[in-house]
Design a protein around this nucleic acid. Structure first.
Length: 605
RNA sequence: GCCAACGUAGCUCAGUGGUAGAGCAGCGGUUUCGUAAACCGCAGGUCACAGGUUCGAAUCCUGUCGUUGGCUCCA
């Protein structure tokens, strides 16, 4: 299903499918024929070479690192005496055009290791790459006459075939992705088979920016940020309606799927964090404080508190599974530079729950969770996502037998579900394997929403047990799980997914009445009263704008229903219904419309 | 945390050493209009913060904070 290509540095390039605009780009390339995908790969790879040539011409001292194609472009990393400026990109582009116009053929050449080391002796990164290659690895160099580069190949025939390209941005990047190594300057660019394809791509990027949740959040008065509490959203009344709408929905699912909601403290004495292991492993991400000479930590997770709830009573196998849900606010000190709008914040809440069950119950619990998640994602419009099963890491707790059973349980559930998933060996948490559910944002960055994680460690640390059928005390397993993940992040992803046009049940204002003239305001207000009495969030636009301006404003506020009232409607006791999508439903009796929208809200249609 | 850019009115931005500007939003008035922007007027800013250079700083320099794009991280 996923077209896969190998990057220069050996990583897999994977194309992901989604409905968001940036993703439709990849969707387009998925639907495109393999030849086109291959052509783009070779064009971009070739463009990277041509760019490196241009950079070295302008910066003779440059040390060049690697330059692979990516999902929608390419980049190349350099170590230069000064950072690149925007004007540099123009100069580099100009030189690239010369090379492309010259239409120089690409040709590959095999080299002995010693010869390769000799040829790149003044390029320390290339020397490092060559030195790290296995002894038996074939070393190849690809050139387009005026430039040659260590490369395993995959080019267009000649530089003239590179197509329409554009350099996009400069960024910092560590050599070999290691923050202890050199910081390099990375230039991102993109290349397409035609100017139209390039323009198309740039338009998609622009559309992604238009639906960026930070911009939409401001436009719709949902939330804002302030340096007084960095990376911590302030939710305005409208944003709070959305947040609460999501929580209310999840609570309904909790009733259906047998969860019990609990409430736990916000700060805990350090003793708890020592017992849970957070003090040793997570301290740098925690907010700590001293009060009355005792040290406290603000909770970054709910798990330890839930373990305490479980341990507060003895439990029989007959009670299991026990499912504790908690919307408690969490605080995590995220390093500066990693936060991003609502997607990565320092305080947030989750639709978090912990399931205490027996080893034998894992499969059914995970299955039930995925069914619930599926129900929620379908309702919320996320029909495609990436699933990843993460297996045992090197450093871990628990016996191999436990891991065998846990991993088998997860993969069996996934296999039975019939959906595709990736396997990521070694990526599991030290306390157990997990399944993560990822969805991309408007700019194509992937964010984890759902997760289900098995935990063998927490029950040990808190000495949890239950009385088994045979009267012995047994250790339960804990399953950490969240569907929407961080509610803040989910709201961000949802906004971008829907470009701010939230479903009626989540819309902060579900209907707005638009009086044509002042004499219709009073009637409009009676409509609003009826809507509110039926539980519908409605208002009336009584400003002295013309109707056209009011409609425009309502469209921009993404209000699902606009109810125009003039002389005709007032006389007939009707409203002229206009939908956000632009459709005009014509005049409808007020009572009929109230009934209809109230049902739509109740059904979350 | 690292590399870089940026921070001017509620929002989007202009303003490169000489008294702070526009559009939108807001407020007041005129208009009372049939499915995406009527008209006139008013008000609104310690130019992120602190220090420095200068006769004079939004503008130049240093530091801090924050944001953005990447990288790294995301038990």
């Amino acid at each position: 299903m996923f077209p896969v290509a190998l990057l220069d540095d050996g990583r897999l390039l994977r194309t992901v499918v989604e409905r968001s605009p940036a993703m439709s780009l990849q969707q387009a390339s998925m639907n495109a024929d393999p030849n086109l995908i291959d052509l783009r790969y070779r064009m971009r790879h070739s463009a990277a070479h041509v760019m490196a040539e241009a950079v070295v011409k302008l910066f003779p001292e440059a040390q060049i690192a690697i330059g692979p194609p990516t999902e929608d472009g390419f980049y190349y990393d350099f170590e230069v005496s000064r950072p690149f400026a925007p004007e540099d990109l123009e100069a580099i582009e100009a030189l690239m055009r010369e090379t492309i116009t010259a239409d120089r053929p690409f040709a590959g050449e095999e080299l002995a290791r010693s010869a390769a080391l000799e040829r790149f002796s003044d390029q320390k990164f290339k020397v490092e790459i060559i030195s790290d290659l296995p002894e038996d690895e074939q070393i190849t160099v690809w050139s387009h006459q005026s430039w040659e580069d260590l490369c395993r190949g995959g080019h267009v025939d000649s530089t003239g075939k590179i197509g329409a390209f554009k350099l996009l941005s400069v960024a910092g990047a560590y050599w070999r992705g290691d923050e202890k190594r050199e910081m390099l300057q990375r230039i991102y660019g993109t290349a397409w088979e035609s100017q139209e394809a390039l323009d198309d791509f740039l338009e998609r990027v622009a559309e992604a920016e238009r639906r960026d949740h930070r911009r939409v959040g401001r436009e719709l008065d949902l939330f804002f940020f302030d340096p007084i509490s960095p990376a911590s959203p302030f939710f305005l009344p409208k944003g709070t309606i959305v947040l609460n709408g999501l929580i209310d929905y999840v609570k309904e699912l909790y009733v259906k799927y047998g969860y019990q909601e609990v409430t736990t403290p916000q700060i805990f004495n350090t003793d708890l964090w020592k017992q849970s292991g957070h003090y040793d492993n997570y301290l740098e991400n925690m907010y700590m404080m001293n009060v009355d000479d005792r040290e406290y930590g603000v909770k970054p997770m709910n798990c330890p508190a839930h373990a305490m709830l479980y341990a507060a009573n003895t439990h029989s196998y007959r009670e299991l599974p026990i499912r504790y849900a908690d919307f408690g606010r969490l605080h995590r000190y995220e390093r500066s530079g990693v936060t991003h709008g609502l997607m990565r914040v320092r305080t947030f809440s989750q639709d978090d729950a912990h399931i205490f069950c027996t080893l034998d119950q894992i499969a059914q619990e995970v299955n039930s969770f995925i069914a619930m998640l599926d129900e929620a994602y379908t309702l919320l419009g996320f029909d495609r996502m990436r699933l990843a099963l993460s297996l045992r890491p090197e450093k871990r707790v628990g016996t191999d037998e436990m891991w065998d059973r846990a991993e088998a349980a997860l993969s069996q559930v996934l296999d039975a579900s019939g959906r595709e998933y990736g396997i990521e060996p070694g990526e599991g948490a030290f306390y157990g394997p997990k399944i993560d559910f990822f969805v991309p944002d408007a700019l194509g960055r992937e964010w984890q929403l759902g997760t289900v994680q098995l935990d063998f460690s927490l029950p040990e640390r808190f000495d949890l047990h239950y009385a088994a059928e045979d009267g012995t005390l047994q250790r339960p397993v804990v399953i950490h799980r969240a569907m929407l993940g961080s509610l803040e992040r989910f709201m961000g992803v949802l906004i971008e997914h829907l470009a701010g046009a939230l479903p009626v049940w989540l819309s902060p204002v579900q209907a707005t009445v638009i009086p044509i003239a002042d004499r219709h305001i009073e009637f409009g207000q009676t409509v609003v009263d009826k809507l509110r009495a039926a539980g519908v969030r409605a208002d009336v636009d009584d400003g002295n704008d013309r109707m056209n301006a009011k409609i425009r404003a309502a469209q921009q506020r993404k209000i699902p229903y606009m109810l125009v009232v003039g002389d005709r409607e007032q006389e007939a006791g009707q409203v002229a219904v206009r939908e956000r999508a632009g459709g005009n439903l014509g005049a409808v009796d007020v009572d009929e419309f109230v009934t209809r929208i109230a049902r739509e809200v109740a059904d979350r249609a």
